[in-house]
């Protein structure tokens, strides 16, 4: 049977074209407004910025909300910081003697275990380097939550006896530690006098030069913060010049080896003026010499 309805034709279903495609006055004005460059820029950039900023400011205007946001952020931060991956539970100290290691452990500002975010390695390093016995410290956090402290200690090379007591100094003259008893470090030479710690290198050179008589050397004394005296046993004293004390001591040693000068009854050898070395005899010996001289003088008169 033939259907009575005509098949749908696309021509009928298509809407008729507008007879008058003119925009309405309002649409025309709106489009002109939209094509205005300033307006366009304001709408596309200015308006979203203002809107978002307004929303944010409006939300944050309430103090409670601000506090809540701050709390949330802090909690979140704490959660992340306290994850086991970031926790430091041990401190390993390398290269330090037991007392220095104990001191380092005592001065650590945070209680372990602590989060690695809470550790200010730079500040800790500075604090550790404040210890006199520590020359150089290196801190880093090893995997496994270990705070690795690698310490280079200062090596004491000399003892300095001053008004405040006996101190060990390293080769730069920096204090290492106090020493209660000289005999605890009998291997180290002793220096004394004000300002002696600043000239440790020179003192070491003198001591090195005086090796042949080291069994007699009691120590060095800094005189007037400008020159050295070598104090020997038997109350002997060698006064060294300000300039080039090492060659002066070498001269003394040469004399000693040739003439056994230091074995004689000489109280002081004064080398302060290199052109005029002077010696002072021990008190009793002077009288004996005077007697001898008198005897000598008496003999011709007899």
């Amino acid at each position: 049977m033939q259907p009575l309805r005509a098949p749908a034709r696309s021509d009928y279903s298509r809407p008729a074209p507008l007879r008058d495609p003119a925009p309405s006055r309002l649409a025309y004005r709106a489009e002109r407004l939209w094509l205005t460059p300033m307006f366009r820029a304001a709408m596309r950039i200015g308006l979203p910025v203002v809107l978002v900023a307004g929303l944010v400011v409006g939300y944050l205007a309430d103090g409670d909300r601000r506090a809540a946001i701050g709390q949330t952020v802090a909690d979140l931060r704490k959660q992340i910081e306290e994850r086991p991956e970031f926790m430091v539970s041990l401190m390993a100290i390398d290269g330090a003697s037991v007392p220095v290691a104990g001191a380092i452990r005592d001065m650590l500002p945070v209680e372990l275990p602590a989060s690695s975010f809470a550790l200010d390695l730079e500040a800790m390093r500075a604090a550790i380097e404040q210890i006199d016995a520590v020359a150089d410290a290196e801190l880093h956090i090893r995997p496994g939550g270990i705070l690795q402290v690698t310490v280079k200690e200062r090596q004491p090379v000399i003892l300095w006896r001053s008004a405040s007591g006996l101190q060990m100094l390293d080769k730069t003259g920096h204090r290492v530690a106090n020493l209660r008893d000289r005999s605890a470090r009998a291997d180290l030479p002793v220096i004394a006098g004000e300002g002696a710690d600043a000239m440790v290198a020179e003192a070491l050179a003198i001591i090195h030069a005086a090796r042949p008589i080291h069994f007699r050397v009691r120590g060095l004394v800094r005189m007037g913060e400008r020159r050295w005296d070598i104090v020997l046993d038997r109350d002997q004293r060698i006064m060294l010049p300000e300039a080039d004390p090492v060659s002066a001591i070498e001269r003394i040693i040469a004399l000693d080896q040739a003439e056994d000068m230091l074995g004689r009854d000489i109280a002081t050898i004064d080398l302060r003026n290199e052109h005029r070395p002077t010696i002072r005899l021990l008190g009793g010996r002077v009288a004996a010499l005077e007697n001898f001289n008198g005897f000598q003088t008496k003999v011709p008169s007899q």
Partner: peptide, 21 residues
Amino acid sequence: QETERAIRTAVQAAQKMAQTR
């Protein structure tokens, strides 16, 4: 009125093509 609408049509289309006012 009709002419005004036709002018609006033309001007709006030209503006749209020029992307300026």
